[in-house]
């Protein structure tokens, strides 16, 4: 039976945008709207440099948000990323510190710099592997598993730094990665890392089979399994992917500050989760996008920096974030229900 191509095209509906596109546009317009409102209220807010700063100051959380977003879309949480940031940073310092310093905190393993970084990354991946093992193999809810590994990772970092930080006896070029400027501009390497990561992630999500598998698993894990998808393997990849990003973020931060600090990245897992939710990713999985998460980060950044600009005490920032999250999520739910009536 041959079917004419002409008749078919009626079924291809290009006029109506998808729910995904709709929510992403909604989040983007809220971000832009908030920015304009803040520009009216806060002096000197409406400047190109300020716009750039909103993004570049948040490179770490946005990067973590990529891994967290993929996992959320697949129906899983990752609360361990903040802990991994601390762990990999501390490990990279400890591995790179030369042997035989004046005290325990100034003597490390004396590995070559590149090897120290690889080993620190391996440490981060180990936490990701642990997440995958418990979630996939033992079927423990991911929120519990990653809450546990969050504390394991930060706990190890704390033991290695004895609850303080390590910042002496480091190789000369240790600070290079974190402060490297690209092509003579003021853009730093970590920001380039974030931008590249976003582009790759968007390509994977929109154009690659890997992205589509993530949506299928998140939308209905049972149907995915009965359709021949290896959910276990895919979720393992996602946890390794997320922990690798967190590992790199931790290494870059420790290089920028030239120190390994066990409290670094504190609450970053929650910020990453918040921007993903603000960006319209469904907490039950199967819906959402990395671009949405990016605009979610902008919303959060505008709110917090406008608050600072309005000389609101920093003590109020948590409450402000909470209000922003509630409003944004209510608005999304309302918009989707209305649209689909």
């Amino acid at each position: 039976m041959s079917v004419s191509i002409k008749a078919d095209t009626a079924l291809i509906d290009n006029r109506r945008m998808s729910d995904q596109m709709y929510i992403t546009l909604l989040v983007a317009s809220v971000a832009i709207g908030l920015f304009l409102i803040a520009s009216m209220l806060v002096p000197n807010f409406f400047q190109l440099q300020n716009m750039l700063n909103l993004v570049t100051n948040n490179w770490a959380v946005i990067s973590l948000g990529v891994g967290v977003s993929f996992l959320l879309v697949s129906g899983n949480f990752d609360l361990s990323v903040g802990g991994i940031v601390a762990l990999s940073g501390v490990l990279s310092v400890w591995f790179a510190q030369s042997i035989g310093g004046a005290n325990a905190l100034s003597s490390g393993l004396g590995l070559p710099y590149w090897l120290a970084l690889l080993a620190a990354l391996a440490g981060a991946l180990a936490i990701g592997g642990l997440n995958a093992l418990f979630v996939v193999k033992f079927r423990i809810p991911s929120i519990i598993v990653t809450l546990g590994t969050m504390m394991v990772a930060r706990g190890i970092a704390q033991v290695i730094t004895q609850g303080s930080q390590r910042n002496t006896n480091l190789p000369d070029d240790f600070g290079l990665l974190g402060s490297l400027k690209v092509f003579g501009t003021s853009i730093q390497l970590p920001v380039v890392f974030m931008a590249a990561l976003l582009l790759v992630a968007i390509f994977i999500e929109r154009k690659m089979l890997f992205g589509r598998l993530t949506y299928w698993i998140g939308a209905n894990p049972t149907a995915a399994r009965l359709s021949g998808i290896d959910n276990a393997r895919h979720i393992t990849y996602l946890y390794l992917f997320s922990s690798a990003i967190a590992g790199v973020v931790g290494i870059l931060l420790s290089s920028e500050f030239q120190s390994g600090y066990s409290n670094r990245g504190m609450l970053m897992e929650f910020d990453a989760l918040v921007i993903a939710l603000l960006g319209g990713i469904a907490i039950a999985g199967g819906f959402g996008s990395v671009i949405g998460m990016f605009f979610g980060a902008i919303i959060l950044a505008v709110v917090t920096s406008a608050a600072t600009g309005l000389t609101l005490s920093p003590d109020w920032q948590f409450i402000l974030k909470a209000v922003a999250v509630f409003l944004a999520i209510m608005a999304q739910t309302w918009a989707l229900t209305r649209r689909n009536q």
Partner: peptide, 18 residues
């Protein structure tokens, strides 16, 4: 067990032959 109900017809069909 069979459908991805929050996905479209187009997105449902190819899943068993990735």
């Amino acid at each position: 067990q069979g459908l991805f109900t929050n996905l479209t017809i187009r997105e449902n069909i190819p899943v068993m032959n990735i």
